[in-house]
Amino acid sequence: MQTHTHWTKVPKSAHGASAAIGNFDGVHLGHCAVIDIARQHGPLGIVTFEPHPRDYFAPHSKPFRIMNVESKKNRLEKIGVEQLFQLPFDGQLASKTPEEFAREIIVEGLGLSHVVVGADFCFGKGRTGTAQDLVRFGEDMGFGVTIAPLLKTETGISSSSAIREALTDGRMSHAKEMLGHWHRIEGAVNHGDKRGRDLGFPTANMSIDGLHAPKFGVYAVFVDVLTGSHQGSYQGAASLGVKPTFGANVPCLESYIFDFEGDLYGEHLSVAFVEFLRGEEKFNDLDDLITQMHADCDKARRILSNEI
């Protein structure tokens, strides 16, 4: 997959793509339905924005992203995207009228042959452009437009907001139904306080900065090691939260990988949340904590053995 980070720097060889346009936070089934339509009209492209427009207009808002940039790129590549147009959302882009967006970005910059958007798509300064406006611009400027309907699952419309609600409640199977895959957090392994190693449960610590956090607690997880000499897929149990027993206050993800020996500092992991086991607890006695951790791991092993 080729990645382009500005509409003025796209080589002519990347022109002619059929692209789905949107933020694609989560790359859920609704997004995939839009992307699959684009796939039918030419080399598959994605037009997305970084930072997310919501970050631009409300930089101090509560973290809301389902996926970080790395995770989204990995997912888009996995589903066959050939050209990723990751456009900078800044004052220059935000000030463009809908017609300027269509002419300067879609036609002159990216050279798209076809675009696909959701029925609720809005674009241009003040979000004044609609999907129907895009159809009209396409007719005038020479690119095709398809408006994709919203996708409904058995439990309702597949949307990023509905997925966030499921994650907040710890309903990981419901989130999976809308995502089409287990919810994952991806990133580099950081140095922690190494308490897990002292307790007999060494963990790989990862930041969740900028992400919408699933319900704090302990989960059964699959862990994919994406880089380094230990690349592969493993089973594990993970704690997400602020470690109340030790008085921490910055949320993080700590994954204990079953039957694993090795150093993962600096390597990139993808942690899939399979099932919520229990909420965060504060233990006054470390022996009680260790006993509970053994119970958590036993339960996680039973759950994960049924998912293989």
Results as ranks from 00 to 15, higher is better:
E275W: 00
V225F: 02
N284G: 15
P63K: 11
R164G: 11
L84P: 01
F89I: 05
A19Y: 06
V47C: 08
W182A: 10
D193A: 13
A119F: 08
Q86I: 14
K125H: 14
K299A: 07
I308T: 15
V69Y: 04
R278H: 04
A38G: 08
S161V: 12
E99Q: 14
D288K: 03
V10G: 07
V135A: 08
E186R: 09
N68L: 04
F201H: 01
T168P: 00
A175D: 03
E139I: 10
F101L: 02
H294N: 09
L76Q: 04
T245N: 07
A14K: 05
K282A: 13
I257W: 01
S255A: 15
F201K: 04
H212K: 15
V221F: 00
V274Q: 03
L87T: 12
H268L: 05
S158Q: 08
L269W: 01
D285V: 05
R184G: 08
D259F: 04
G228P: 01
K72E: 03
E70W: 05
Y256W: 00
E77K: 13
K176E: 11
N306T: 15
D296P: 05
M141K: 08
G241F: 02
G217W: 07
G30V: 10
K96N: 09
I21V: 15
V242I: 12
I105E: 05
A248W: 02
D288C: 05
A238T: 07
T146A: 14
Q132G: 14
L211W: 05
L277T: 05
A162R: 15
V221N: 01
P251Y: 09
I157M: 14
P53Q: 04
T8V: 07
C122F: 10
W7G: 10
E307Y: 09
G126A: 12
F258Y: 01
N205G: 05
G129V: 11
F260K: 06
